[in-house]
Every structure is written in C-alpha cells, then in structure tokens.
Amino acid sequence: MGKDSRLILDPLADNNPITIQVLGICSALAITAELEASIVMSISVLFVLAVGNVVISLMRNIIPSKIRIIVQLIVVATLVIIVDLVLKAFAYELSKTLSVFVGLIITNCIIMGRFEAFALGNGPWRSFLDGIGNSLGYAIILIIVGFFRELLGSGTLLGYPVLGNPIPGELTGLYAYGYENNGFMLLSPMALIVVGIIIWIQRTRNKALIED
C-alpha cells in the first residue's frame, strides 16, 4: 500500500510533471491567465489521463511496439472526442466551456508521457493511480500559476475583483493608493517566469533534485 500511495504523492512534489519532468509546459503557458480556466483544464486532464492510463495499461500486452506512439495518440484522441460528443448532446453549455480545451488535451505531453513511461509497463490499478497523481501534480502548478497571473494581471480571482475597482475616476481598494495591474502578467512569457520561480524554490529546498 505504501508503494501505491507514493504513486499519488510523488508527482505532487519531488516528481512533479511540470517542474521536474518538464512536461505539459505548453498548456501551463497558454491557459493560466485566469484561475477558472486553470481549474477546468486540470479537471479535464485528470479525467483523460486516469481513464487513458487504464485503457493503455489493459492493452499493453497486445500493442505492437513499433506503432505504440500512434496507438497512444489514437486512444487519447478517441477518448476526448467521445467526451466532447456526449457533452454536446447532453450538456451543451458545459461542452461550450470545455471545447477550447479539447485540442490542448490531445496534444498535452503529460498524457503521452505517462502512457509511454508508466501505463505500458504497469497494471491497470497502478496506472490509474499514476494518472490521478500526475494530473494532480499538474493541477497544483496550473492553479498556482493561474492564481498569481489573474491576481497580479487583472486584480481579480475567479472573476471577482479582490483588489478593488481599477476604473479611473472610481478607484477603490488598493488602486486608490496608486497600485496598478501589471498587464504583462496576462502574457504567456510571465507564466514561464512564474513556473521558473516555482522550480527555483523547489530545487533550493531539495538539493537532491538538482541535476549535474
């Protein structure tokens, strides 16, 4: 049991998919300008990675090694399309919110990375746990980055103005003291810098993570 729980806990910190394995950076940059988008993306990836890992793990003994990457890609794409179609038919509003993320999920390196590195060599239950663990590790970073980008970039959190009213002429809260939103935080490069700072802090605290 101790081994199984490590599958969930390791990716949260010392084997984090974003800061240690440096996978899934693309979506961490693209959609973290708002906290809400980060959360929606995290939940979507959680679902696809957990189910996909189980499917690949069940198929692991019959997948021809020469075309395994293509097979993995087909599994992710099929899963995502099925979810998208079902949502469009039965939960149209939700599907509209999520449709933007569909393309980002299919191409998310974490998913292919976990299929290749873990699910192909492990049983379904352990693969399931690995999927949950890694997507939670992904979620933590996305939510941290989304939190700081939305707070410093727009002065809001989940759409609620937490720092006051920034409109000239009716300044309230922090803005009344001359504080200004940093529009730069809304641009993708700042996500990279925030992720960089997280990596820096993490490796300063745990020297074992530093590679030679």
Partner: peptide
C-alpha cells in the same frame, strides 16, 4: 509476437476499424 510486421499491420487495421466504427456510430447517433 507483437514485434512482427504482420502483427503490426493487422493490429493497425483492426484498431482503425474499431475506432472508426465507434466514432461514426456515436456521431450519427448523437
């Protein structure tokens, strides 16, 4: 067994047929 070319080709064809049929069915049903 799974390294053979013949197996690879048959697997690929089978997978495409199954996935294709599944998605086509879902798309037209919904």
């Amino acid at each position: 067994r799974t390294d053979k070319n013949s197996y690879t080709i048959i697997f690929a064809i089978g997978m495409v047929l199954i996935v294709g049929a599944l998605l086509a069915y879902l798309a037209s049903a919904l």
